[in-house]
């Protein structure tokens, strides 16, 4: 069984928002609803400054805190490690939003369901690749099976020493090069 994850290389991300808008269209989100959030980081003092854009979305954590607190089991994890929301079970209590350390769960205005990135899950499989990866103009995103040492993502993680953003918070499946 695959265990899906993603790599985001912020050294290649120019912050064009392609992933956000492509994701919105594919997932039927409103303009002000987004599964992908962008953190602008600026470090240093003029003229020795570094700026980066860090796209953040559901990290598909192992033992996801949002899943642990979800009272209705609307949030669940597939055998392939994808954290999903069963919109027919979600009551919109927002407990998952409070529990998510990354603040990436959002309320869908139309339904009140608390949604998030699902790696473009189509009902039986993940997107191949998900829309954000498919449209990334600089190849900053890599998607694949973390358990397969020969997958692009495993190779890339090894080559770049990519790590999750905050391993002290959760065991995330999105790896970052920063």
């Amino acid at each position: 069984m695959a265990r899906y994850g993603m790599l985001i290389n912020t050294k290649k991300c120019v912050g064009c928002f392609a992933c956000r808008v492509a994701c919105q269209m594919a997932n039927g989100l409103q303009s002000d609803e987004s599964f992908i959030h962008f953190k602008e980081e600026e470090t240093g003092v003029y003229p020795n400054v570094h700026a980066e854009v860090v796209p953040v979305q559901c990290m598909h954590c192992e033992n996801a805190p949002c899943q642990q607190v979800c009272p209705t089991h609307a949030t669940y994890t597939t055998d392939s490690g994808v954290v999903l929301v069963d919109e027919n079970k979600c009551i919109g209590c927002k407990y998952c939003m409070a529990a998510c350390p990354y603040g990436v769960r959002i309320a869908i205005k139309e339904t009140g369901v608390i949604e998030k990135c699902r790696f473009c899950w189509d009902g039986s499989e993940v997107g191949n690749p998900p829309r954000c990866v498919n449209t990334c103009i600089s190849g900053a995103r890599v998607f694949g099976d973390l358990d397969d040492p020969n997958s692009d993502i495993s190779q890339e993680i090894a080559a770049t020493n990519a790590r999750p953003l905050a391993s002290h918070l959760t065991d995330a499946k999105i790896y970052y090069v920063r």
Binding site: C90, I91, G92
Partner: peptide
């Protein structure tokens, strides 16, 4: 809990 409000059975 809006989603539940729309679908109380949930």
């Amino acid at each position: 809990a809006e989603a539940g409000l729309h679908n109380p059975l949930r």
